[in-house]
């Protein structure tokens, strides 16, 4: 490691120095010094189609998306609209039937540490403690123990979990687990952070807290984030740009740019007004989907012995 003396992680241990985590380029496992001044995280998707066997309509139909480096894009839509599939394609876990997907000009061909993912169910390894979980990716990339320890310490501080380094995942609360998962993703210094409904399983208070912390982290690290959720409140609070997907087939129904300053308060009037608009957009979409599904909606016959007016109830006693 003597060839890369400017390990700014140790030089700037303050939380504000977190962008310094990115001195190594761990894509392809190379330890070449990454050019920090070149912004990374430009995701381009064009003409992406995906359908699953046995399903008549496409999950994704001709979806095009361009993310700028450092942009926070939130994808919302009714359930089953292909939000998660879109994320999986960006992660390289699923391959599109047609279309082109690339990150910083490189076509995406499989999962890799340059596109770190935070899963809904945290997906921490239960046999590893918190710091081992965070350092797992670095270990796979061949970092030495000392290097890993440095990075893990910074990452722990980043998500305010210094005191829990030796704890096992099952000893943590839901919010803490998700913070470990975020630290585990960020420590890889990814170009793009993918988040699949990461806070859906948390209680409301914890979720609000997590929103604050995620905004804080994003402002510090300026990673590109592609975030999937079904919560409109979450979307308007976090996003630079909201993408509303329609279902059956999954298409981009509308894009909404959010030009409000970060960090945002969830109860500000601007946010509420925006949330109302987006919610309406999604409700229309949900209604459209439901209208399709309820064409021949089955209604139970009222039972014959309960057909009488309510006033007669109890007469037989």
């Amino acid at each position: 490691m003597s060839s890369t003396p400017s390990v700014s992680v140790t030089a700037t241990p303050s939380p504000a120095g977190l962008t310094g985590v990115g001195v190594y380029d761990v894509i392809n496992g190379s330890r070449a010094k990454a050019a920090d001044n070149v912004p990374r995280g430009r995701l381009t998707m064009s003409g992406v189609c995906k359908s699953f066997r046995g399903s008549p309509t496409a999950v994704l139909d001709n979806v095009a998306l361009e993310m700028h480096p450092g942009e926070f894009v939130v994808v919302v839509g009714p359930s089953g609209c292909g939000k998660t599939t879109l994320l999986n394609i960006a992660a390289g876990m699923a391959r599109p039937d047609r279309g082109h997907v690339a990150l910083d000009g490189r076509p995406i061909e499989g999962p890799g540490p340059d596109r770190a993912m935070v899963f809904q169910d945290h997906a921490l390894f239960p046999w590893l403690n918190v710091s081992q979980n965070i350092s797992f990716g670095l270990r796979m990339a061949g970092f030495s123990r000392a290097e890993r320890d440095e990075h893990v310490e910074v990452a722990l501080r980043m998500v305010h979990l210094q005191g829990s380094a030796r704890k096992l995942p099952h000893e943590l609360s839901g919010g803490m687990k998700q913070r470990v998962a975020i630290a585990r993703a960020l420590v890889m210094n990814p170009s793009l952070l993918l988040m699949d409904e990461p806070f859906a399983a948390l209680d409301a208070q914890t979720r609000t807290l997590m929103h604050e912390q995620l905004q804080e982290l994003w402002l510090q690290t300026r990673k590109s984030i592609l975030f999937v959720t079904h919560s409109v409140g979450e979307a308007v609070r976090l996003a630079d740009r909201i993408i509303v997907l329609s279902a059956h087939p999954g298409r981009i129904r509308r894009e909404i740019r959010v030009d409000l300053a970060h960090p945002r308060r969830f109860d500000s009037p601007d946010i509420s007004e925006l949330a109302r608009q987006v919610r309406k957009e999604i409700e229309d979409e949900v209604n459209r989907v439901n209208a399709q599904a309820t064409v021949d909606f089955w209604k139970p016959e009222p039972p014959a012995d309960m057909g009488g007016p309510a006033g007669l109830l109890g007469d037989g006693i």
């Binding site: 876990m93 499989g110 999962p111 890799g112 540490p113 770190a116 997906a123 890889m188």
Partner: peptide
Amino acid sequence: PLYQRAGLMLGARGWR
């Protein structure tokens, strides 16, 4: 299967 996906995401390939 989530563990495998998480492992892949973190660069655990092949024998790893």
